[in-house]
Structures are given as structure tokens and as C-alpha cells.
């Protein structure tokens, strides 16, 4: 849709994606490499930027949902490209256009707070914990704090 294309173009522009020189520094610091056994170039910041710049089907690509939005890539980029802003912008467009939404909703307040692949990683690492602990992890940070406080007073 024309509107969608404009928004993608705007996301690319405001994050500075056009300045990417593909040096790969962002990939070197990206924690995704340690999180996902199927980590691939397409999932890496460099890969997402490249695909966004060369094609318009980046919105339906599942690879934009793996990012933790930690901003480490932005910190080391010599060109000042903010991969986090790009990912955020693309995710917003995907949600708004109702194409796909791979975000986890807090079980208490319903707000989205983390993407599902990231959440799955955390659960995988913590799988030995009993269920009532894992339940707490399904809450967004502010609900977690409220629940914690209510239990303790």
C-alpha cells in the first residue's frame, strides 16, 4: 500500500539506514548471536538494514522480530545508523498495517513489552524453574512490580 511504503521510507530515513556501509560492527556486538541457535545473517542488524534498503517485503519478514532492542549496534556504528530505530519503526508499521504481530502481551494489563522470540529465549534459559515463577515472567515490568508489591503487603 502506498501509505505503507511511505512509512517504510520514513523509517529508513529517520534511522539513517541509507548510510550503512556494511562493515559488520553491529553484528559483532549483537547479543542475538548468543541467543538463537539459528542465528543467520538475515537476522542480524546488517542483514535487516540491507533487506530494508533493497526490498519492500521487509515488513512481512520474520527476522525483524528477533531483535532485543538493546541498541548495542547503534552504539558501535561508525556511520551513526540506529538499527534499533529501524527495527522499531518496521515493527510499528507491521502492527499498524495488521500484517503480523509477534509481540508478547502482558497477561495482566495487555500491553506489549517484548517480542516473542526474545521471550522464548528467556523461557528456554529458565526452563528449570517452577511454573509459578515463570508466570511472573509473563508480566510487563510495571505489572510485575505491582504484583510483587501486592503479594508482600
Amino acid at each position: 500500500m502506498a501509505n505503507g511504503k511511505d512509512m517504510i521510507a520514513e523509517a529508513k530515513r529517520s534511522s539513517g539506514a541509507h548510510s550503512c556501509v556494511e562493515c559488520g560492527r553491529c553484528v559483532a556486538v549483537c547479543p542475538m548471536a548468543e541467543m538463537y541457535s539459528n542465528f543467520s545473517i538475515e537476522m542480524s542488524p546488517r542483514g535487516v538494514i540491507k533487506k530494508a534498503l533493497t526490498g519492500n517485503d521487509i515488513i512481512t519478514d520474520e527476522n525483524i522480530w528477533y531483535c532485543t532492542e538493546c541498541n548495542a549496534g547503534t552504539d558501535v556504528c561508525p556511520q551513526g545508523v540506529s538499527c534499533r530505530d529501524l527495527i522499531r519503526g518496521l515493527r510499528e508499521i507491521a502492527i499498524e498495517e495488521n500484517i503480523v504481530e509477534d509481540l508478547k502481551h502482558c497477561t495482566r494489563c495487555g500491553r506489549q513489552f517484548v517480542s516473542i522470540p526474545v521471550e522464548n529465549f528467556v523461557f528456554e534459559r529458565l526452563r528449570e524453574e517452577p511454573p509459578n515463577v515463570l508466570d511472573v515472567l509473563e508480566l510487563c515490568p510495571s505489572c510485575k512490580r505491582e504484583v510483587y508489591m501486592l503479594r508482600n503487603t
Binding site: C30, P31, T68, A72, V114, V118, V122, L126, L137
Partner: peptide, 10 residues
């Protein structure tokens, strides 16, 4: 630390 924030979630 890359400030990914996963510790806060966990």
C-alpha cells in the same frame, strides 16, 4: 553488557 534488558525481564 550490551544493555539488552533480558535480565530485567527475567
Amino acid at each position: 553488557c550490551v544493555a539488552c534488558g533480558l535480565c530485567t525481564i527475567a
